[in-house]
Write a protein that binds this DNA or RNA. Structure first.
Lengths: 162, 162
DNA sequence: AACAAAGTTGCCTCTAGCAACCAACAGGCG
DNA sequence: CGCCTGTTGGTTGCTAGAGGCAACTTTGTT
């Protein structure tokens, strides 16, 4: 079953990916602001790209608990990287906006990252890059929370060390 | 800069991947044994695939702290899924072996997973699968711990929500 | 009035990094 | 050879980060 073979390798690569990415995110978070936690960095980057948003939309994007989001947003506000303002359209919601200072710091880090990245992935053609993106996207789709219910247990693991 | 565009999307997809994989691993760990923690499951799977190994080799594979490995191995031993025996070749080391019971349970879970996976990724050709694997492998290589030192900050993050 | 949605908070577990520590090997060197 | 030093394999205590779950408040919706 060669297909099973490929699946096993896929899981192994995904496992390696996760561990490396975790480390890298931590480095970048620290580069933006001392004391910026990795997971909060991800939220900050999201706000930088997608403009003002409410917490619930971040919950949807990241698929993590709203309590966790709430705390991380608080963290960002404490560091002066994000500002809260009431949503004029809904009294319950608050809009999160990245501050100019945070935008500046983030841009600098992004520039550095892209530089090194070009250096490391310089031999990739753009087609290879977009192919990888679309394949990952497809794979992610397969990993979507099971519409079949929990009975299946299942789905490809991935963070394996296989 | 279309290349930058692709990089941004790549980071977003990797971010989604990480969150989904985390959930999936948790489900599978529970399926193997109630009380089996996700990260310990990964070690167990590794042992199942690579045969008896010492803790230090697991440390190398997973690139995480040896203290964490030590605790997770202890956890597996407590659950009766792994056994320790002294390494005849080195008095300091211990060899970790997966128990028959664990092998059985793991095989069952792997079977279920593969079933669902085939169902979800049934439309992938084997070439597409292997292409993804090699692309990921290449990407992972680019993420290797920087030989350039920490000054660079850097490398693609990924768990972004971009 | 009843219910749903947006957030906040408390409590809990899991995870892993760091550092201190012990035991066992390995390589000189007097 | 015995001894000293350094290295490697592992364990343990401490700590912080991360996020799930649930209770609760406030505001909207029907």
């Amino acid at each position: 079953m060669r297909r099973g073979e490929a699946l096993g390798q896929l899981e192994q690569e995904v496992g390696v990916l996760i561990r490396r990415v975790r480390r890298v995110i931590g480095e970048r978070a620290r580069a933006v602001h001392d004391g910026l936690q990795p997971s909060s960095y991800l939220i900050l980057a999201h706000l930088a790209d997608c403009g003002p948003a409410r917490s619930s939309s971040i919950v949807d994007t990241f698929e993590i608990d709203k309590g966790a989001i709430s705390r991380q947003v608080q963290h960002l506000v404490d560091l002066g990287l994000v500002e809260r303002e009431p949503d004029p359209a809904d009294g319950r919601a608050t809009l999160l906006t990245i501050t100019p200072e945070a935008t500046r710091r983030l841009a600098e880090v992004t520039r550095q990252r892209r530089e090194l990245f070009d250096e490391r992935l310089g031999d990739w053609t753009e087609a290879e890059l977009t192919d990888l993106v679309s394949a990952l996207s497809r794979y992610n789709h397969a990993l979507e929370p099971s519409p079949l219910g929990a009975h299946a247990t299942v789905a490809p693991d991935a963070g394996r060390g296989r």
